[in-house]
Amino acid sequence: MLTQIAVSLNSIANPIGQVLLAPIEWLPGWLSATLIGVVTGVLMLVVFKYTSNQSAIKRTRDQIKANMLALSLFKDDLGVSLRSQGRLLTGALRLILHALIPLAVLMIPMILILGQMSLWYQARPLRIGEESVVTVQLADESTDAVQAITLNTNDAVEVIAGPVRVSSKNMVCWKVMPIRDGQHQLEFKIGGETSLKEFVVGGAFEPTSQKRPAWDWNEVVMHPRETPFAPDSIVQSIEVTYPQRDALTAGTNNWVIYWFVISMVAAFVAKPFLNVNL
């Protein structure tokens, strides 16, 4: 059920992401990451404003500030101070409660946005001549399939080594080398069944799906671009090892931290103009 929902949401998010994030391809990485951070930060702030109880948040915030001030104003009496501490804590907990609804509302779009962004920033496409490992994970009950599966070569990729068949893990690996730029498909055959996996070679910024996932919602969320394999499919997932992107703002793993910081700063700057209580 969850996986089906995730697949449906991805089917909406993918074409939108394709269009909206297209400028990443021709913008410098730092600029596109910054712009996305700013826009999403402000948008999320607006969503927060209209999905939260703003007056209750303001009241709670004021109460928290009052109790903080009380700690310095009435510090003579330990009992009074501890009571203020207690109220400070309950105020903070109330604030968390007030954030739950916007949190629930924001969570899904945020996951989708971040999933789309990860396609662009988490890995770099392979360059011609750059070796990579392709791993096919097969279903548990298909020990014969480990021996049977083949990778059809084409004019875009050359198999350097393999297949290495690890029966104990139902896993088969190939070492491959791209020989032509472009968005290609790797074709795997097992019996009469054909399984495909995107294989990206070339440009600095292109949507790069590292894995065609199994029928698992967690995997589907993390790898939104390609349709997951059906639950009864012999092939469970196919993963291509892409190189890491070295950049502070739009590099592997760094992009999410940079985006977090930029979106927070943008929201913080926009807060007084949009009159939002956080």
Binding site: F48, I64, M110, I111
Partner: peptide, 20 residues
């Protein structure tokens, strides 16, 4: 990327935890 739910709620949660 699942640990983050937007700057609004993020601020609120960060603020609350800071207060606590």
């Amino acid at each position: 990327v699942l640990g983050y739910i937007g700057p609004g709620a993020g601020f609120a949660l960060a603020g609350s935890f800071l207060a606590i």
